[in-house]
């Protein structure tokens, strides 16, 4: 029986990675110049900030919630840091501390609205999406914020967070963020409660777990990841434009879903999310290597999201039909 379990477990774990490998192989064969270290770097770089958002929102989705404000929260955090740096004249390192702090504050507010004010997460975070977008415009007086780039003062910023020569330093942060997120989700009390809340919030509460506290924490952690994502975003693009950022959440959430996390809560893994992120990044780079531009990428991302959930449903149904004879 335990053997049986393990086999099923492996199969489930192998589905998403094999899709990733197949996609990569497909584009390597049919794409133009896809199979190169340059493209690999592009894939990595395009995954930086979406990846961070996806890790963060994985916690929220497993509790059975949703956070629609992650995209605008990220942009708002990047703008706040930019304002501190260029308009208030703060040293860069201090401005960079303010970035995740901003993300945390908005995440915390989401948590309060959901856990304490009992607003449905969809509504609370939809509101917060507009609030963060507006706040970014207000504090920056609708000015695009610029972060230092190569050749200017504080050029270390790009080197440290984006690329050092040919070395993609940002990937290290992505990896570190993944390891931390995976550890927290699977090995800490908070992580275990996240699953329990998503599986049955009331039963968890009656077990003596301070459910409100841990829900607030889940949204706050999500905000923190958005804040770190904002630093990686700023280092990649060096500008943060007020009024943008919404739409990012779609891709971040899509990656989580492709990674096999259930929107109903209670199940999902960080490894799945990581693979989901790379499936999307490979898709983006691959389609453009075949000469298909942005609108095609949007189209196919949608197809992959639907396909991933369909496949997962089929897999679950197939698993239920498995006959085990002792």
């Amino acid at each position: 029986m335990s053997l049986q379990n393990r086999n099923k477990f492996d199969l489930q774990k192998l589905l998403a990675p094999s899709v990733l490998v197949i996609l990569y192989a497909f584009f390597a064969i049919f794409g133009k110049n896809f199979f190169s270290s340059y493209t690999l770097k592009t894939i990595l770089e395009s995954a930086y900030y979406t990846g961070l958002m996806s890790f963060g929102i994985t916690f929220v989705i497993i509790t059975g919630g949703i956070d629609l404000s992650i995209g605008t929260n990220l942009m708002c955090s990047a703008i706040v840091g930019g304002v501190a740096y260029s308009m208030w004249g703060w040293p860069l390192w201090l401005a960079l501390l303010l970035v995740p702090l901003t993300g945390v504050i908005f995440g915390f507010l989401n948590g309060i609205l959901v856990a304490k004010a009992k607003l449905p997460p969809f509504i609370a975070t939809l509101g917060m999406m507009l609030v963060t977008q507006g706040f970014g415009s207000i504090i920056s007086r609708v000015q695009t914020q610029r972060y230092p780039t190569i050749g200017t003062t504080d050029a270390w910023f790009k080197t440290v967070f984006y690329r050092a020569g040919e070395f993609p330093t940002g990937a290290l942060y992505l990896l570190a963020a993944f390891l931390i997120a995976a550890f927290v989700l699977s090995k800490t009390r908070f992580g275990r409660y996240v699953y329990a809340i998503g599986s049955n919030e009331e039963a968890t509460r009656l077990s003596g777990v301070k459910v409100d506290k841990y829900k607030i924490l889940a949204y706050t952690v999500c905000g923190l990841f958005c804040g770190f994502g904002a630093i990686l975003f700023a280092s990649t693009y060096t500008t943060a434009t007020p009024g943008t950022g919404n739409g990012f959440e779609t891709y971040a959430i899509a990656a989580v879903i492709i990674g096999g996390t259930s929107m109903a809560g209670g199940s999902g893994t960080m490894v799945g999310t990581l693979i989901g992120i790379f499936i999307m990044a490979v898709l983006r780079a691959g389609l453009s290597s075949m000469g298909l531009q942005g609108h095609w990428q949007t189209f196919f991302t949608g197809v992959v999201v639907i396909g991933a959930v369909l496949m997962d449903n089929l897999r679950v149904r197939a698993a239920q039909k498995v006959k085990v004879r002792n």
Binding site: R189, Y195, S199
Partner: peptide, 24 residues
């Protein structure tokens, strides 16, 4: 089912839920 158990979690994790602090 409504108030006692997290049906989607394992037997072990359900049992540990009331006293996770002891297992850390």
């Amino acid at each position: 089912k409504r108030y006692g158990l997290c049906l989607g979690l394992t037997v072990a994790n359900n049992i540990a839920l009331t006293r996770l602090n002891n297992f850390i």
